[in-house]
Write a protein that binds this DNA or RNA. Structure first.
Lengths: 158, 158
DNA sequence: ACAGTATTATTGATTTTGTCATTAATTGCA
DNA sequence: TGCAATTAATGACAAAATCAATAATACTGT
């Protein structure tokens, strides 16, 4: 698990920003977006840590709440993780009693990943926590800006 | 180097998007931003591959064009990479004749990373290529939306 | 119905990254 | 001067990405 120091939410410094712009990197979407992604992921990871799961595990859990339940295959596509990685993530969630692997009624190859009641609750808790944390992280932005960001990023990411 | 298949620029599918929204993950900034970051990074990586460098190497090269030249220390802060990682990246760029390590005139501990003429040109080429690629990647967005995205993400990432 | 092909979950090997501790050289401070 | 801090570099180790292979099952075209 990439558990960055939770006490240091990684604030970049003024001077860095100036030189970043001067170098041209500050206009580079690959740089900006991946950096924004890393920063928010770090924050999110720290936020769900008290729940006893990593942010990746949270995402598996969260997506497993969809109906009908996803196969591990779908999880790997949606989360853009190698199928072999999903195995381990689901393993840990299963051991923690948060999800179950149920055989698909229609295809005996696939195992559906289904949240337990505890898993359901934890997923909702996580959603609340993350919403709070991001509200805080984006406190400097206007609500319309956040909405715009959400809409645009969704167009890129989805 | 995380060199994703350059022929498959990773297009998410309609149906995934629907279920992603249904699961609630589609409203999750940690998910959206990190995913957008990964997607654009993959695209960018494929785009600069013909130049013979990875996107990380490109970023080091690009930032080294700032004046005065950065120390390796500054590179590690700005790019959020471990100092030990910078060593290898600069090594490769140096071997490729794209940057030089010059002793700082004011502090004999620091080595300034300075682009060669070839490095300068390649950095500019890269900037052009990446601009094109992202224009293409964001083709569905209005220019104002792209501007807004850039501004907002810069506030988050910088 | 059959043969061949594709797909699913899983395992394992290999490589790449991230993270940490340590070191030698050098600087800056008390 | 002497001591703590900083820089680049190296090496150790854990985490993650990537890739190949496998067994079970499903699907296809004939």
């Amino acid at each position: 698990m990439p558990s960055p120091n939770p006490t240091r939410p990684a604030a970049p410094h003024r001077k860095d920003a100036r030189r970043l712009l001067a170098s041209g990197l500050g206009e580079n979407f690959a740089f900006l977006l991946s950096r924004a992604g890393v920063l928010t992921t770090e924050t999110a990871n720290a936020a769900v840590e008290p729940l006893g799961i990593s942010i990746q595990e949270y995402m598996v859990l969260s997506f497993s709440t969809v109906s009908p339940p996803p196969s591990q295959r779908e999880l790997s596509q949606v989360l853009r993780l190698d199928p072999s990685r999903i195995v381990g993530l689901v393993d840990r969630l299963e051991q923690a009693g948060l999800v179950q692997r149920l055989p698909s009624p229609t295809d005996r190859r696939v195992k559906q990943v289904v949240p337990t009641d505890t898993g359901q609750r934890l997923s909702q808790q996580g959603a609340v926590i993350l919403a709070e944390v991001h509200a805080q992280q984006f406190a400097g932005l206007q609500p319309e800006e956040i909405a715009a960001l959400s809409a645009i990023v969704r167009r890129i990411a989805l």
